[in-house]
Structures are given as structure tokens and as C-alpha cells.
Design a protein around this nucleic acid. Structure first.
Length: 628
RNA sequence: GGGCUGGUAGCUCAGCUUGGAUAGAGUGCUGGACUUCUAAUCCAGUGGUCAAGGGAUCGAAGCCCUUCCGGCCCGCCA
């Protein structure tokens, strides 16, 4: 609680006044004010004006008069604005102290939305037959950021990555390895996932057009993958594990970690589908078609104008969507867990244990990764299928909102970037396609960013060691990439442009990180240890107050972001913090003032800013270096 | 054809969930600020029929309806 204390006080007092007027059931707002309108505003006069059929301004006059007679701790004055708004001015000497003290605590910004309940977040979920491209990164960064925010909102979060290791895309590269003569090891120490995606997958897909007999081979391989016993299946398993390892390296490099890897092949072989199939039949959620175009199939009826969806083909096999249902049910703990768990071969860089499912019996302690609620991060092209799963899950659980599909628009390539990949689009943006080789790999974007930032740092700091430069360049590159992926709303398409993505000015992570580095530098140079044992009355300059106010808004933004599953709220908050600080920095001197008390007071703000920004950036998975 | 979704400054986007003040950022362009705590910065200027039309409201970028334009989805593929 911080700025929220002021808002709560005002909210309570307005309620008291309304009680005196014998008015209830008015849902007025009490919000941080726009610049120039005090510190907090309320629209209560408009709503009350409606109630009493009076001019809002008259009501505001009456309310401000009544309010000023009340006991206030944190409000110094209330004004009625000619527009009808009620504007509150804070007692900053007191609020300064509250906010600055609070911001020094470890849990600053934490809110209790989750009440320590368990929630599953599934993201990434990429076919292990290629390297991660920039489109996958949006999913991964979104999922990771949401997980971090939910943890801050007091949820226990289980992060899952569903590895689709038995689909058609995997079959494709196996065709390449086994029938088109691709060597098992990549040339020139190329990363294995890049080799599989850039070379084998693309070229194998091209060959299908020239040689239709390959289609049959592919079909057979797909079947063997699902059975899982043949030599081919074992070979495929080796290949997909190797690709997966590379993909996970990319994720780890971006600061993304998981709790458990789930393998589609194991879900299929576990027999979970049969349990679910019976349950669907019992609950009359699916129907057997005796005639029509889907004769002989089990279907789920389409809602409003949607077509019926086939779950079980007339030959008795389950379709893609059907396979997703048992997994969704597993995540919610609606089926008996058929899995055992073992540790992933490598330790995650954050030292957090990564588990993976296995069907092989072992003596390990049984892990538990299910949740009372599930969030599945998948792009919005799957809205329709996800809606079917959402409906089924709420019926299984007899509860709404237990399964949440967090959809987002996909990442496309700008016309210029498509051109550099050999596709002329007449100035239009282009959908990425793994099949056609039309994508930008995440690793390459990272490398380009790192080269650029390394040059920049070297230019600014000729004295720095290569090791230090590389470390800083890493944080800036990861920050830049992550920030670009979440700063806009989920329903907005991201048009990725290689050149523009390398921009480090303006509304970017480096801008924010730079503000942090400036703060670090002030504290370092002052040679004093920041403390909250200061004279708060000295902090009354508009730039100081504005910065403290922004620091005080942290928890409210965390709440907003968690409630609405909207990570961009935190991105914008970090940017706001940096803007407030940069403005402060340009106008207010901190060290060498010849006034020890004032210097201590200002140093306290700088330190609070630094601590708060660090926590907020952590929610975005971004690290701010002390120098850059 | 049906469904979902977007349209706000030259460009990229906030604001819309919960209607109310002067519609905000970044970028671009123009000009200014580094012997000073790092100029990856700051300050100022420029730039808007909030896609169009209608409706309900004292009041609409926001709510309802219609239309236009863009994107995506609609297989016994995954």
C-alpha cells in the first residue's frame, strides 16, 4: 500500500459523506489525477448530479465543502473543478514518508489477488523440429511475463511447456533424415535446431511437391511416432530431444524458465484420451453421427453458426483437437495423473529444477503441476478450437473461467524484412512460415542486438573489460527484445522489421535501463549510504513529488496487470518511472549540494526509484545494469 | 457466406473493461541544452473530421446499430 492509501482514504471519506446524505449504490471512481488536476480525482459529482437532478458543479461545491470539514490524514485540500470533477491535493510531507519507506521493503508492489491459489501457465509449446523464430518469442515472453506478474499477485504458478513431439512437423524432418539423405549432424557447427528448421524442414517440404510418393512415407512415419515403439520412433525421439535442448537454450538466454516439460507423445501413449472419451460420452457433450457428411464420427456440436467439429474420425482415431482435451483436463487435475517425473538433464540458469514427464516408472517423489485455474498462451488463430476446450473444461469443472485461453495477434514480417528473405510483397507485410523458410530466428535477432549494443558500450566505455561489456550487452539485448514483445496490447499485430527492431532510443528497454544506470551512478558517486531516516519536508519540488508519486503507483499497476492479464501495463509503468526519473535528473541536482540534509533526502528518492524500477523490470524479465 | 479481431497525429501505439476536464506517448520533422550526478538524455515547437453515418444520453474516441477498409479462422490436417 502506498499511493493506494491516499485513494482508500478519499474513497472512505466520500462514502461517509454519501451515507450522511443517505445515498448508496453509487459506483463512483477515485483515481490518480491527470497532470494539472491535483493528485486524485473523483467523478462522484457527475453520478450524484444524476441522482439529485442537479448540476455536477453545484454538487462538487457542496462535496468539497463537506470534505474539507472532515478529518484528513493524507489530503491537504479538495477543490471542485468547474467541469464538475472533485480534485484532491495530497499532504505530500506525509505521503512522501509512506511511499519512500514502503518502497524500501522487499515485497513492495506485491498484491494479494491470488490468495496463494495455484495457477498453471502454459506457454512456448513449439514443435521440436526447428529453431524458435520471432513469432514464438512473443508467446514465450508473454507467458513468462504473465507468470512473473501472477507470482507478484500471490499466485503459486506452475509453468509448463507442452512439447508437440509427435506431430506432422516432426514427421517431416524425419523424412528428411531418413529418405532425403540429410546428415545427422549439422555442417559448420551450426546449431542443431537451426539446421533442422532452416535446412531439413524447408527442403523436405519443397520435395513433397516434386515427389508425391513421399507423402505416403510421411503418413507412415506419423503413425509410427504415435505408436512409439518402432526404431523410427526412437530415432525421432532422439532428434526432437536434441532440438528441444537448443530451443530451451534460447529461452533460458532470454531469462525464461519452466517448472515442467510435458510431451505430447506421452499424453497420447498414456491412454488419457480413453478416460476423457468416456467422460464426454457420459456427459452427453459429444454425439455419434448416423448420417450426413460426418457419418460414423463422434462430433461436438458447433455453437451459434459454427460447424460441428469432428473429435473421432470414422476410422476410430482421434483428431488434433481431441488430443488437446485430455491435456487440458490433466492441467486442471480432472484425470488421474498417469505420469512419473524426472529431472531434466540440465540445470536451469536460475537454479530452479526443471522437471519432465515420463511414462517409465521411477522412485522419484511424485510431483504435482496441476492448478485450480489454467492459462494457456496460444495465438488467436486458435481462438475457435480453444473456445471448444474452454467450454468443455467449464462443464467438466462445473465452473466458469477455470480454463483461460490467453490469445494474442501474431507477429508478421515487414515488407522490407520479407524482401531481405527473398519475398517481394508489394509493400505489404507478410505472415511468417516455417515451411517456406520465411521467418527471422530469435537467435539471430539477439546476435544482431548484441553486436550493436557491444559496439555502443565499447564506444562509451573504452576502459571496460570485454567480459563486462558482454554482460551489459546481453542485458540490454534481452531487455530490448522482451520489451518490444510486450509493450503493446495483445490484440495488436506486431510487424517485425529487422532494422527498426535495433532501435535503442525512445520507448525501448535501453531508455528505461539508462535511467536506472544514471540512478546507480548518483548513488555510487555520492559515497553516502541511502537511508530513509531523512527530512521528508525538504522534498517538495514538482520533479521530486512527481517521481515519488510514480513510485507510489507500483502496486496499483501490478493489480491491474494481474487482473486483466495485461503485461503491457507493467511495461508502460516502467516507462513512466523512467520518464519521471529522467525529468528529475535533468532538473534536480543530488550530489555536491553543500547541504547534507537535502542531499540525503534526494538520495533517498533516487534509491527508492532504483529499487522500484528494479522490481518492476523483474516482472518483465529485464535486468538493468548499473553502467551502460 | 459465417465467426473473431483491428481502424486514434506522416509512421508505431496508449486511452475504451467502469461515458465527463485540455484526446496522450514514442518516432519523424524544426529549433534549443553536454568544462556539471553518463546527451541511449532533456526542453520547446510541429502534427488529430478518434474510419464513416446514425441512435440512446445533459454529455461519446469510449455504449448500441449500420456501413466501409485491413488481418485472422472456418479439414475425418496438425
Amino acid at each position: 500500500m502506498s499511493f493506494k492509501l491516499l485513494i482508500d482514504e478519499i474513497d472512505n471519506n466520500i462514502h461517509k459523506i454519501l451515507d450522511d446524505l443517505s445515498v448508496s449504490d453509487i459506483l463512483f471512481s477515485v483515481e490518480p489525477a491527470k497532470p494539472g488536476f491535483g493528485d486524485v480525482s473523483s467523478n462522484v459529482s457527475f453520478l450524484l448530479g444524476k441522482h439529485f437532478k442537479k448540476n455536477p458543479k453545484e454538487i462538487a461545491d457542496m462535496l468539497s465543502e463537506k470534505y474539507n470539514q472532515l478529518q484528513s490524514t493524507l489530503v491537504s485540500n479538495v477543490e471542485s473543478h468547474p467541469s464538475g470533477y472533485l480534485n484532491f491535493f495530497a499532504n505530500w510531507e506525509k505521503l512522501n514518508q509512506l511511499i519512500l519507506s514502503e518502497s524500501n521493503l522487499d515485497y513492495y508492489g506485491s498484491v494479494d489477488l491470488g490468495k496463494n491459489s495455484i495457477i498453471v501457465v502454459e506457454h512456448t509449446s513449439v514443435n521440436p523440429n526447428k529453431a524458435l523464430h520471432i513469432g514464438h518469442i512473443r508467446n514465450i515472453v508473454l507467458g513468462d511475463t504473465i507468470s512473473r506478474i501472477l507470482k507478484k499477485a500471490n499466485y503459486k504458478v506452475n509453468v509448463l511447456n507442452y512439447v508437440d513431439d509427435s506431430g506432422l512437423q516432426v514427421a517431416d524432418i524425419i523424412v528428411g533424415f531418413r529418405h532425403l539423405g540429410f546428415a545427422q549432424d549439422p555442417p559448420n557447427e551450426k546449431k542443431f535446431d537451426h539446421y533442422c528448421g532452416d535446412d531439413i524442414y524447408v527442403k523436405t517440404t519443397e520435395k513433397y511437391e516434386q515427389d508425391p510418393s513421399l507423402e505416403n512415407i510421411r503418413k507412415n512415419i506419423l503413425k509410427e511416432l504415435e505408436d512409439g515403439t518402432s526404431e523410427i520412433a526412437q530415432f525421432a525421439d532422439k532428434i526432437t530431444r536434441r532440438v528441444l535442448e537448443n530451443q530451451i537454450e534460447t529461452c533460458w538466454n532470454l531469462g525464461v524458465y519452466y517448472d515442467c516439460l510435458n510431451f505430447e507423445s506421452q499424453i497420447i501413449r498414456s491412454g488419457l484420451w480413453n478416460q476423457i472419451f468416456e467422460k464426454l460420452k457420459e456427459m452427453n457433450l459429444i454425439e455419434f453421427e448416423n448420417n450426413g457428411k460426418n457419418i460414423g464420427c463422434w462430433v461436438i456440436r458447433g455453437e451459434n453458426n459454427d460447424e460441428d467439429k469432428v473429435l473421432v474420425r470414422s476410422n476410430g482415431t482421434a483428431t488434433y483437437i481431441a488430443k488437446d482435451i485430455p491435456y487440458a483436463a490433466w492441467k486442471l487435475g480432472l484425470v488421474n495423473d498417469p505420469f512419473n517425473y524426472e529431472k531434466y538433464d540440465k540445470l536451469q540458469p536460475d537454479n530452479h529444477i526443471l522437471w519432465q514427464t515420463t511414462l517409465v516408472p521411477n522412485n522419484n517423489f511424485k510431483q504435482n503441476f496441476i492448478g485450480e485455474k489454467v492459462i494457456t498462451v496460444i495465438d488467436s488463430r486458435q481462438d475457435r478450437l480453444q473456445k471448444i476446450i474452454t467450454t468443455i473444461m467449464s462443464k467438466f469443472k462445473s465452473k466458469q473461467d477455470v480454463y483461460i485461453h490467453l490469445g494474442y495477434e501474431s507477429v508478421t514480417l515487414s515488407a522490407d524484412t520479407a524482401k531481405t528473405l527473398g519475398l517481394n510483397t508489394d509493400g505489404k507485410q507478410a505472415q511468417m512460415s516455417g515451411r517456406k523458410g520465411l521467418y527471422v530466428n530469435a537467435d539471430s535477432v539477439y546476435d544482431l542486438l548484441k553486436n550493436k549494443t557491444t559496439d555502443e558500450i565499447r564506444r562509451r566505455h573504452p576502459e571496460m573489460s570485454d567480459f563486462e561489456i558482454k554482460q551489459i550487452a546481453h542485458h540490454i539485448s534481452v531487455g530490448t527484445l522482451r520489451y518490444e514483445m510486450i509493450k503493446q496490447d495483445l490484440d495488436k499485430m506486431i510487424t517485425f522489421d529487422l532494422t527498426k527492431s535495433l532501435s535503442l532510443d525512445g520507448d525501448t528497454a535501453p531508455y528505461i535501463q539508462y535511467a536506472f544506470a544514471r540512478a546507480s551512478r548518483i548513488i555510487e558517486k555520492s559515497t553516502r549510504i541511502p537511508s530513509i531516516d531523512i527530512d521528508f519536508s525538504l522534498l517538495n519540488d514538482q520533479f521530486e513529488i512527481n517521481l515519488i508519486k510514480t513510485i507510489g503507483l507500483f502496486d496499483m499497476h501490478v493489480m491491474d496487470a494481474a487482473k486483466n492479464l495485461s503485461p503491457k501495463v507493467i511495461a508502460r509503468y516502467c516507462h513512466d518511472l523512467a520518464v519521471s526519473f529522467n525529468s528529475f535528473y535533468e532538473h534536480v541536482k543530488v550530489i555536491d549540494l553543500g547541504n547534507e540534509k537535502l542531499e540525503n533526502s534526494r538520495l533517498c528518492i533516487v534509491n527508492s526509484f532504483k529499487l522500484t524500477l528494479e522490481k518492476a523490470l523483474e516482472l518483465l524479465g529485464i535486468t538493468a545494469p548499473d553502467k551502460m
